[in-house]
Design a binder for these strands. Structure first.
Length: 427
RNA sequence: GCCGCCGUAGCUCAGCUAGGUAGAGCGGCUGGCUGUUAACCAGUCGGUCAUAGGUUCAAGUCCUAUCGGCGGCGCCA
């Protein structure tokens, strides 16, 4: 008797063999002479049959949905079984008999979210979380292949990265601190030692946004490196995204198909991505009848209209400096334009923002003041420009937004196991 | 910050427009039947109609407030 994973049985490796599986009861259909059990483990779902003359019968009768068990039996190929294989049960050992499981056939969004801790057992969440883990793996592979060093920035911070209004404040002993909104400034510190660096870490935003693409806690893929310009940045970002999509289409094909995601969409993500300047984007929108003027930031509807034209990931770059953060470098001959780039995808809009960072101390101080920020809050950040400043670039990519687009999720909350939104933080 | 929608049985919902005895399906339980595919058939159990107040002879239904949830905008990844 060998202990096997359900995936191995479904793949046909165990036909005719005696095996044991460990897992949970997914469905149960009871008859007078036969009980059908669908057993799930982390790898899949297998049908098991229990006949009345089997030693397993009495335990099978007691089983409830979501009870945990070890089931021993013989694998048999049968066209009537979902997946083509089933296990004819010979012995069942109940590990934990489940109480009446609250999730049944019909379920509302609200109820499913209330019992998130139980819903995570569903095939759907199992598949999404596996793909998410793979996407994280492919991301690390790509950074590593480009000689980046992974670093670990702090989550507790003492000064804002972006505007102060969206910071979560907290008591840190007797001090007021914040949860970080981005690790960018800390990555900038580390390039002076390690040069090419990246991190995958949470970012926290106290934005009261109630949409299918906002979380208050999300995982941020951020990279920063010296001696590079806008073109290097865009090339890196598109190669990263193409690598992630190609690898996912290739290595997670089965999961994508079971989930009902569009494999072709992912395999067809290829470089180079379309690139348009902010000015071109405004002109394109004007042709569509938009009232947007040069200098206005895009609304979500504008982004959506542009994304529909391309129907694949693309870049918008060279934004008005006024709508971008203080650390964005501007063109010497065009100080009104910032070297900033957003990557957009259909339906979701922005999934990434990056740019060239201001490396001149005096310009940076001027920008900090113009934005109404306090110079003393950025003392260590200014030190980076005092001691051997270098031109450098960086970007941040929202992992869950990327997954929402890749997997055609209806809502970003399913891209993370324990979503935090304005109203949800349980369990 | 602004706007819209929702809250009725364990779960999914109907009933509200036009006020008049609280309904169905699923699940549970009991029985039947079946190589079943989130099976089927019969019976049965199951309700502070989110909460508070108001209008009315009469409120699940109309009005007000509160609480909880969802979505859209702004902002953002």
């Amino acid at each position: 008797m060998t202990l096997v994973k359900i995936r191995e049985v479904l793949d046909g490796c165990c036909d005719g063999k005696k095996v044991a599986v460990r897992g949970w009861v997914y469905r149960k259909r009871e008859g007078k002479t036969m009980i059908f059990l669908l057993i799930r483990d982390s790898t899949g779902v297998i049908q098991c049959t229990v006949r009345k003359d089997s030693a397993a019968w009495s335990e099978a009768e007691r089983l409830t949905i979501e009870s945990s068990l070890t089931l021993e039996g013989t694998v048999k190929s049968d066209p009537r079984a979902p997946g083509g294989y089933e296990i004819v049960a010979e012995a069942i050992s109940i590990i934990g008999l489940a109480e009446l499981f609250p999730i049944t056939k019909d379920k509302s969004e609200q109820f499913i979210r209330d019992v998130r801790h139980l819903w995570l057992r569903s095939r759907r969440m199992n598949l999404i979380m596996k793909i998410r883990a793979n996407v994280l793996g492919f991301t690390r592979e790509f950074f590593k292949s480009q000689d980046f060093t992974e670093v670990s920035p702090p989550m507790f911070i003492s000064a804002a990265v972006e505007g102060g209004s969206t910071l979560f404040g907290l008591k840190y002993f007797d001090q007021d601190l914040y949860l970080t909104q981005s690790s960018q400034l800390y990555l900038e510190i580390l390039i002076y030692s390690l040069e090419k660096v990246y991190c995958i870490a949470p970012s926290f935003r106290a934005e009261k946004s109630r949409t299918i693409r906002h979380l208050t806690e999300y995982w941020h893929i951020e990279g920063e490196w010296p001696f590079a310009d806008m073109h290097d940045l865009m090339r890196f970002e598109e190669e990263l995204l193409a690598y992630i999509c190609q690898q996912t289409a290739d290595k997670c094909k089965k999961q994508l198909e079971e989930l009902g995601a569009d494999v072709t969409k992912l395999s067809s993500v290829k470089t180079p991505f379309p690139r348009i300047t902010y000015t071109e984007a405004v002109e394109r929108l004007a042709k569509k009848g938009s009232a947007l003027k040069w200098g206005d930031d895009f609304g979500y509807d504008d982004e959506k209209a542009l994304a529909e034209e391309f129907n694949k990931p693309f870049f918008i770059y060279d934004y008005p400096a006024a709508v971008k953060a203080f650390y964005c470098k501007t063109y010497r001959e065009h100080p009104e334009i910032a070297m900033s780039v957003d990557m957009l995808v259909p339906r979701i809009g922005e999934i990434s923002t990056g740019g060239v960072r201001e490396d001149d101390k005096d310009t940076l101080i001027r920008r900090i003041r113009e934005m109404g920020l306090k110079e003393e809050d950025y003392d260590w950040y200014l030190d980076l420009r005092r001691y051997g400043t270098v031109p450098h670039v960086g970007f941040g990519l929202g992992l869950e937004r990327l997954l929402t687009w890749m997997l055609d999720l209806e809502n970003i909350i399913d891209a993370i196991p324990f979503p935090r939104t304005t109203r949800r933080f349980y369990p």
